[in-house]
């Protein structure tokens, strides 16, 4: 196989893939469509937060605290007189971005280590697997809490690295398991006998073959990471004020619950950021569920 022939094949393969993807999309169930539309909406809001939000992220717009819902402040203001709607919009950017970074860290470290462990076997695999077992024996929220206790003040990159590292163990497990199946196949052996380097084998033979389960896992992992970070922020140990975060906003506005009988709008205000989290994770789960059905269905058919 020379370079010219592979290059010539690429465009045609890509076009037919795009068409196939569009055909699949048209057949997608309503839940997957719902998920994709909502997710797109969230991403747009996160990217253009400063253009959409009526006020600044930590701008104090009202002298009082906990103003009621009005045309000026749609969802009222929080305990410091900041516009809740604006903060929710900025929080989309913060929460989603940080969760994405943490998930990416988890996949890069856990995925690579998993592939290496599956390729090398032997003591590298043994040591890595035992260590991962031990870290996995500590529930991820508990582990994160424990590590965050060490730092004097929680910084954003602490959260990304800690959560990324903890979740890397789960990614390691999965990648190692699926890579193990691929590594033992004939074409990998053939590539090795042909004299290809380890890097080439990983890039060209292993990664393309373990992509579907890893993509599904990425979606699910992202949800877990998102929920863990929101839980941390809710507990007051995640993103530090004045950074807006949905989890932290629930905590900050929770006192409004007590007024629910007299003013229902005030009562449901703390549920808005919580609902934003729920809607996002439900949407991603719908997409993943469809994708899972798709890929596992293909496997049954073969």
């Amino acid at each position: 196989m020379n370079d010219a022939s592979t290059l010539a094949k690429v465009p045609r393969a890509r076009r037919s893939k795009a068409i196939a993807a569009w055909r699949e999309l048209k057949k997608a169930p309503w839940s997957a469509w719902f998920g994709m539309i909502v997710l797109t909406g969230y991403i747009v809001v996160a990217l253009f937060a400063p253009l959409i939000a009526p006020y600044g992220e930590s701008e104090v717009v009202s002298p009082g605290s906990f103003d009621v819902w009005s045309a000026q402040y749609w969802f009222g203001t929080d305990q410091l007189g900041r516009d809740i709607l604006s903060r929710m919009i900025y929080a989309a950017r913060n929460s989603m971005g940080i969760a994405f970074a943490a998930t990416a860290v988890a996949f890069i470290t856990g995925g690579l280590l998993g592939i290496v462990a599956a390729l090398l076997r032997g003591w590298v695999d043994q040591v890595a697997s035992r260590l991962v077992d031990a870290v996995m024996a500590i529930p991820s929220l508990i582990f994160a809490l424990m590590v965050l206790a060490i730092f004097e003040k929680t910084e954003v990159y602490h959260i990304i690295l800690v959560i990324g590292f903890v979740d890397a163990t789960r990614v390691f497990r999965l990648t190692r398991a699926v890579a193990m199946n691929v590594v033992s196949l004939d074409f990998v052996e053939a590539a090795r006998l042909r004299g290809e380097g380890t890097g080439w084998i990983v890039r060209r033979e292993i990664i393309p073959n373990i992509m579907p389960p890893l993509l599904t896992e990425f979606g699910l992992r992202y949800c877990f990471v998102f929920l863990t970070i929101s839980a941390l922020s809710f507990l007051g140990l995640g993103l530090q004020p004045p950074t807006a975060d949905w989890g932290a906003m629930v905590k900050e506005t929770a006192t409004l619950f007590t007024y629910a009988r007299d003013d229902f709008q005030a009562g449901i205000t703390p549920l808005l950021p919580a609902g934003a989290i729920a809607l996002l994770t439900v949407s991603i789960n719908f997409i993943v569920d469809w994708f899972l059905h798709k890929t596992s269905g293909l496997r049954d058919g073969q």
Binding site: A231, V250, I268, L271, G275
Partner: peptide, 14 residues
């Protein structure tokens, strides 16, 4: 499954 625990807790509480 996809909802945060505190969301469900607060809905029930409300």
């Amino acid at each position: 499954i996809s909802m945060p625990e505190f969301f469900m807790a607060y809905v029930l509480m409300l």
